[in-house]
Amino acid sequence: MNLLGSFVIALSMYSRIPMPQVEWTKERMRYAMCFFPIIGLISGGILILFTWAASAAGAGTVFKTLGGVAAPLLVTGGIHMDGFLDVTDARRSYGSREKKLEILKDPHTGAFAIIGLGVYLLLYGAAFSELEFEDICLLTFIFMGERALSGLSVVGFPKAKKDGLAAEFSGAAVKRTVQAVMALYLCISSAGLISVGGPVTGVACIAAAGAVFYYYYRMSMKEFGGMTGDLAGYFLQSAELALVMVLAVCRMAGLH
C-alpha cells in the first residue's frame, strides 16, 4: 500500500499545491480518494491565515471579502468551479439527457455558465462579507465535509458515463475503504461544526449539506442518468455556497 503516492495523486489532481511527480499506478489510485477531504482542510487553513493576516494589516471589508472568495478557488485551481459551469450550461440547454452529456464534454463556455459564475460569486461575496473570524474557522470543517460527501458520490452513485475522471477514480478505488474513511471525515466535520459553531449553527449546516447532497443525487439521476466528475464539482460548489449562506444567516440572526 503506497499511501504517500495516493496522497500526492489526490493533491496533484484536485489542487494547485506543488507536488512531486509520481506514477498513477493502480495501487496508488485505490486510496487516492481517501485524501480528497485533506484538500478542504488545507484550503480552510489558508483562508484562516489570509483572514488573520488581512485583519492584522488593517485591511477593509472589501479586500477581505474578495480575497476570501478567491482563496479556495486559487487552492483548487478552479477544477470544481469548472464542473459547476459545465453543468450550468448543460442544464440551461433544457435538452435531452444525451444533449446535456454532450455539453459537459464541450470545452467551450456558454453564456449561461458566465451568468451562473457571476451570480455565484456575487452571492458568495455577499454572504462572506457577513462572516466573523469564528465563522471563517468553521469553513475548514465545511470544506472537508463537502469533499467527503463528494467522495461518497464518486464511489457510490451510478455513473452517467463509463469513461471520465469520476469513473476512473471510482473504478480504481477500494470502495468500502473509501466509504469508511469518508464517513470518518463526515463525523469529524459534523462534530467540529457543532462544538465550535454551536448546536444551532452546526445542525443547520449539517442539514443544509444533506439537503444539497440529496438534491444532487436526484438531479443527477433524473437529468443525466448518473453522476460525472463535472456533477461532483457542481455539487461541491453548490454545497459550499449554500453553507456559507447558512453561516451568514446564522450570524445575522445572532444564533451563535
Rank of each mutant, 00 (worst) to 15 (best):
L3K: 04
L3S: 05
S6T: 02
Y14P: 00
S15C: 11
T25K: 10
M29T: 12
R30S: 12
C34P: 10
P37E: 07
S43G: 15
G45W: 02
L49H: 06
A57H: 00
L66W: 04
G68E: 11
A70G: 09
L74N: 12
T76S: 15
T76G: 06
D82Y: 05
D82S: 13
G83S: 04
A90L: 03
Y94R: 15
Y94A: 02
K99D: 14
E102I: 05
D106G: 04
I115Y: 11
G116W: 03
G118W: 09
L121T: 04
A127Y: 07
S129M: 08
L131Q: 05
E132G: 14
F133T: 10
E134V: 13
D135Y: 01
I136T: 05
G151A: 13
V154N: 03
K161R: 15
D163C: 04
R176E: 14
R176P: 11
A180W: 04
L186P: 05
L193G: 00
P199Q: 04
P199C: 08
V200Q: 00
A207T: 03
F213H: 12
Y214W: 15
Y216N: 13
R218C: 13
L231P: 02
L231M: 05
Y234K: 09
F235T: 08
L236M: 07
S238A: 05
L241I: 06
M245V: 10
C250S: 08
L255Q: 00
L255M: 11
